[in-house]
Design a protein around this nucleic acid. Structure first.
Lengths: 204, 204
DNA sequence: CAGCTGACAGATATTGAAATCTGTCAGCTG
DNA sequence: CAGCTGACAGATTTCAATATCTGTCAGCTG
């Protein structure tokens, strides 16, 4: 046997697996250690606390979405309003997908919310940062009003806040209700007009 | 002694008092009966279940806000964008006031949210109804774009959704953070521009 | 001797028995 | 006899004993 060396990465993979199977309420550090065939003391050699481990797993999980969105934010050769539309739609789709298809890791994410973890704060800062880039792009290209650009970060934050119903985990239970797509289209239209973009949006 | 007749109204007053003192988790129907000097069986003569009683108290409490807002919505002789601004600011202020100064009744309100009570649904419908009136007014007076009026109810709902961070109880913990006023002003500006109103808003 | 183990103390979660509460209703009372 | 009472059954909550978990660390092992 070649017992792979015990790395942080292997621990994270095992932890994700254990969380998916047991959920945040039942998953223990001993479970993770058992899955790896080591003692739980070894896990504590790589992560100082259970909370730290939970955060690292969630960060990895959130970062996968952030990367997908980054690719959209960087899109060139398309009108900025269209980029923003796609970006927000993808954010909504990604969160909804996570909540629906990965409920245990989503529940783990919600635990971090209660803990006021910096991981969540950083995740939001990343998203608002991407939005800020999009807003600046749009203003520069004359596709958004100058008003939006006078403080692009604040505008981006306003866009993020205004669309909260479609990405904030607190609203997850509503994401499977009928009519949610129409509600999203309405808010999106309002926001785009608020940025000074022509209304596009053949909405559903 | 003139033992006042036991009316629903008196029960509601006593219940509100008991809820304020003990909070929704500890307040019992027996407590309410004791406060009134009757047996708890008598209370059940007026309200079929504890949930019904809780809902009636909360409805009364919510309706006080709805009435204040109705007065603003009916304001004449002011630009509609200004009316909308005041209305949303008052909604935010009222919710924040309730959360801060009346925490036990606010907690009771949150219980209803978990119960999917129709009282909350109706409260939201009332608020969106008032917003719909404001939107229709603004469109009619040429102060909002026709786009906003093509489906005033949907637009009103979008305005309600977009400002959720400043009235949805789920966000109550954030309402005392610094910067929240600026965030409100930003979203409000975005929404007003989205409705086609000139940007006013000397914010903060 | 770097990395791992496993026994341990204190913190947290689980469990089941006892206490309390909700909702009903037969009968009391003014 | 309309309105209230209080005993009651079943549901829910509380509480304390027990079990499990987290995080540490002295010492084992390759």
């Amino acid at each position: 046997m070649a017992p792979e060396p015990l790395t942080s990465e292997r621990i994270l993979e095992a932890t994700e697996e254990v969380l998916r199977r047991h959920g945040p309420a039942k998953a223990t550090v001993v479970d993770v250690a058992r899955a790896l065939g080591v003692s739980h003391g070894s896990v504590y050699r790589h992560f100082r606390t259970k909370a730290e481990l939970r955060e690292a797993v969630t960060k990895r999980w959130l970062d996968r979405t952030t990367e997908t969105l980054q690719r959209i934010a960087r899109t060139e050769g398309e009108p900025t309003p269209e980029v923003l539309r796609k970006w927000l739609a993808e954010l909504f789709a990604a969160k909804r997908h996570k909540a629906g298809d990965d409920p245990e890791l989503f529940a783990t994410y919600e635990v971090l919310l209660d803990e006021n973890s910096t991981v969540v704060e950083q995740h939001i800062a990343d998203l608002v940062g991407q939005l800020t880039d999009i807003v600046e792009d749009g203003v520069q290209r004359g596709e958004f009003t100058a008003a939006a650009g006078s403080d692009a970060a604040a505008t981006a934050r306003a866009v993020f806040d205004a669309t909260g119903r479609f990405h904030d985990p607190a609203y997850a239970p509503e994401w499977s209700r009928p009519g949610i797509e129409d509600a999203f289209a309405s808010v999106l239209g309002l926001v785009l007009r608020g940025l000074g973009a022509e209304a596009h949006g053949s909405a559903g």
